[in-house]
Design a protein around this nucleic acid. Sequence first.
DNA 1: TTGTATGCGTTATCAC
DNA 2: GTGATAACGCATACAA
Lengths: 336, 336
Amino acid sequence: MQNSGRQSRRITAAQVAEAAGVSRSAVSRAFTAGAYLDRAKREKILKVAQELGYRPNALAAGLQAAGRSDLVAIVTGDLVNHYDAEILARLVQSLRGLGKWPVVLGGHEDLREEDVLGVLGYPLDALVLRGGSVAESVALHCAKLNIPMILSGRVMSAPGVDCVCCDNARGAAMAVRALVARGRRKLGYLGGVPHLSSDQDRRTGFETALAEEGLSPAVLAHADYSFEGGYAAARDLLAGGAEIDGLFCANDAMALGVMAAARQEGGLSIPEDLSIIGFDDISMAAWPGFDLTTVRNDMDETVSQILRLLSARLEAPGKDNEVAWIEPELILRGTH
Amino acid sequence: MQNSGRQSRRITAAQVAEAAGVSRSAVSRAFTAGAYLDRAKREKILKVAQELGYRPNALAAGLQAAGRSDLVAIVTGDLVNHYDAEILARLVQSLRGLGKWPVVLGGHEDLREEDVLGVLGYPLDALVLRGGSVAESVALHCAKLNIPMILSGRVMSAPGVDCVCCDNARGAAMAVRALVARGRRKLGYLGGVPHLSSDQDRRTGFETALAEEGLSPAVLAHADYSFEGGYAAARDLLAGGAEIDGLFCANDAMALGVMAAARQEGGLSIPEDLSIIGFDDISMAAWPGFDLTTVRNDMDETVSQILRLLSARLEAPGKDNEVAWIEPELILRGTH
DNA sequence: TTGTATGCGTTATCAC
DNA sequence: GTGATAACGCATACAA
């Protein structure tokens, strides 16, 4: 009764070695690219391993050398926001291209900081944080554990922390100028969660650009970045008799909600009665029926910068921290 | 020069032990719930650990006992499909509730089977597969490696493989009956990827229910589950002069695309000129402006069944495999 | 209650 | 080329 534990264990290199009549080291070498090993011997080992269903245990392998567990944690924003969902998909895909395995956290409203700290139990190659949802203490822990951190959509200045961020103020200014160029003068801003720096920057950009045009905001409101939130905010605005002819929304989902409310609750035509510009350029913005004018917060560029910063950091862990700015671009469609 | 490697290592239990003047085992016990350890001693250790930024290495811990690495891989469908994005968010959240860490794969069109096999290098507690994207060979490997597998949206009969699946045929029949009850007689089916069993089942359900009503399909078409695909398919149908007064779509995204095309390209009113029913009930279906009648493929129920099966399998690895059927529900809105 | 000693499965180092 | 052997960092059975 050699191998009859009731809960059968995973096949190990030792078992493969025995079955193939070689040493354990040979088995290890067979799975290591560029290791000295007789060609025929390697092939035999690989064949036996295949039959037994052997696969080197990544946990044990990751224990060997520090700094290459190949695990990267991603803290994503709420996935009902299409922007975050699309970013996550791209991130997961390109991380695989680097040979990394993404451990995903978040994706819903209530992310517990405890979970973020918990995943640091793994010797992560890096931690990628989307949006502004997590506190300073996490950054502190990362620093102590020597885990590189990459922020997206938020800027923070700390050693070992790299950031990718859209120039939010500039994007907001582009939207304002486009609205003014259309003859709009009574402009409103519909922001998202006010304590996030991205929202603050978009709002500041909006107000500054407006001031440069000699105008002041007709309305400053905020919702929760969702379609439903945008819808409700617009309905309230309309019911309150707000006089606006143009609205800049802090993201596309809210802009779509505003459009629906303006049309259905207010009986307004867009853009004739009300111009609307969103932010992000999620794929839905281009759908016929929406055709939303928006400020593109380039997802491909964002993800590729995240990966560039990640690679650079892994190559030179002690390098200076860096901020990669994403240039916004105004996408002209039919709602402004 | 005791501690001056250029690439500073992670703090270990040994270092904490030395700093706190205790044994390594004591440190280990301090982090193990319910281990014998003097109260004051534990607190001191925890304090020192906190200061040093120590955290037990999950890799080393996972190596201890087989079968509880706390890692669960999720192979998700394309995240531009909102259904998959919403399922993933719920899955990630509830997996955390079980103390598991989700390693996420897929999320985009081209999932390489190599990646799925690769993640099996980790001694996963389980592998959760969404949709029908992955081949038999994966199931085989899982079996050999003794990794429990949970399929969602697809059924497969194999030891150690549990499934959660919507009763697709029944859902399709509900849609057909609702359309017929509205007086529709010339019904079409817009399917998704034809080789997926979910699509086949919905199509079969459609045809069978139609036959029971004494009718036969006016149109059988298919697209790629996307809004754009639905839009293009509808445009082609209209251009080809297809005579239909009702269309059942295999998912909501395509149904929304069809609606946009019918209105904009065909100048049709919905549901006056054309009734449309979707499948899934993604959050967007309820948006004003869409108000899509659809067959709910309950996400909360799906995720909770996945978790139930997962827990049961971990408790009793050798138990019989099981299929949990999700009952579809017709959500009556304004498009049928 | 505590410390010592052993094993988890792998890779890397070292003589052969 | 190849096979022993020492880490890697932790949990735990065992002895005290």
